[in-house]
């Protein structure tokens, strides 16, 4: 029975992937891409990788999908939402095929990955948290996560650099218009309390169960975006100091914890067991704030259409 489910899931993933790249029309491709992300998330659940599934659903399907939709809307507003030429299609098809071939080659050449074996089990008591995924992300391989959080920040700075001079002091994104007391306004009032609860829970539970800063941060970013679209909160300006703190605090706390590890344990980013749990929780909370703010600002986009302040 479960074999039938897995086979159907594989067929669906492949079919939707094909529909994403093979069909014509940008909007169609984006919709299929979002469906593809959700199906892949179900696939990760079937493989028992719940943390990856949460990240894929929240970031791969949800956030990337919204970013693509926003980009498509922008192209359409500018009147440049055309399909690329045949040559460009052929080029990207070749590049995609080459990437797939390289991955397949790596799969066959590299030794089959073993289940996280004795080394991880032996190291877990020193991790400070129960969830092995969190232990790897924030303790044993913290470098990767630290650099990821900095990459996100760099992406936002890159986006802000595209702001026109006359729009620089405006509020982020396009002006939102929603009817006072309308459907969107009441949706924006009902959803945030539930979303806040779920986002904070994902971060808190991430230490010992499934969840984490990236998944929780994405949910919190979505809460902020819904509230902004419903016109209940106004997006900040680029110069808002408090939001600079929110954007910076994650990487900053991470680096500070790394320095503390360098002093206490003799190596950068090594968390000695006595402080590992509080340190990881502090980093997670700070990272969540930064991730949520960065992702929400990325979706809102740079200030546009120079509204009067």
């Amino acid at each position: 029975m479960s074999l039938a489910l897995d086979l159907a899931l594989c067929a669906l993933i492949l079919g939707v992937a094909l529909a994403t790249v093979a069909g014509s029309g940008l909007f169609r491709a984006i919709v299929f891409f979002i469906v593809y992300g959700l199906l892949v998330a179900v696939g990760w659940v079937r493989l028992g990788a719940i943390d990856v599934a949460l990240a894929e659903a929240a970031i791969g399907a949800g956030l990337t999908g919204v970013l693509l939709l926003a980009a498509h809307g922008r192209l359409r507003r500018l009147g440049t939402a055309r399909d690329a030429s045949h040559g460009a299609h052929l080029l990207s098809a070749l590049a995609g095929a080459a990437l797939a071939a390289a991955l397949a080659w790596a799969w066959f050449v590299l030794p089959l990955p073993e289940r996280p074996g004795p080394e991880l089990a032996a190291a877990m008591p020193r991790a400070g948290v129960e969830n092995p995924v969190t232990a790897v992300l924030l303790n044993f391989r913290a470098w990767d996560t630290l650099l990821e959080s900095i990459v996100l920040l760099a992406a936002l700075i890159g986006l802000w650099m595209l702001t026109r001079e006359r729009d620089w002091s405006g509020r982020l994104g396009l002006p939102q218009h929603s009817r006072a007391g309308g459907v969107l306004a009441s949706f924006g009032r009902v959803l945030p309390p539930v979303g806040l609860l779920i986002g904070v829970w994902l971060v808190w539970a991430g230490a010992d169960r499934h969840g984490g800063a990236f998944q929780g941060g994405t949910v919190l970013a979505a809460v902020g975006l819904v509230a902004a679209m419903a016109g209940l909160v106004r997006p900040p300006r680029i110069g808002a100091r408090l939001w600079h703190v929110a954007l910076m605090i994650g990487p900053a706390v991470f680096v500070l914890a790394g320095l503390a590890g360098a002093i206490l344990a003799g190596e950068f980013l090594t968390l000695p067991p006595p402080i590992a749990k509080p340190a990881i929780l502090t980093i997670e909370i700070a990272l969540t704030a930064s991730i949520a703010a960065t992702l929400a600002f990325l979706v809102l986009g740079p200030p546009e259409e120079g509204r009067a302040p």
Partner: peptide, 11 residues
């Protein structure tokens, strides 16, 4: 939540 989202988005 699905009910709420579907209803609001349909509007």
């Amino acid at each position: 939540l699905a009910l709420l989202a579907a209803g609001a988005m349909a509007q």
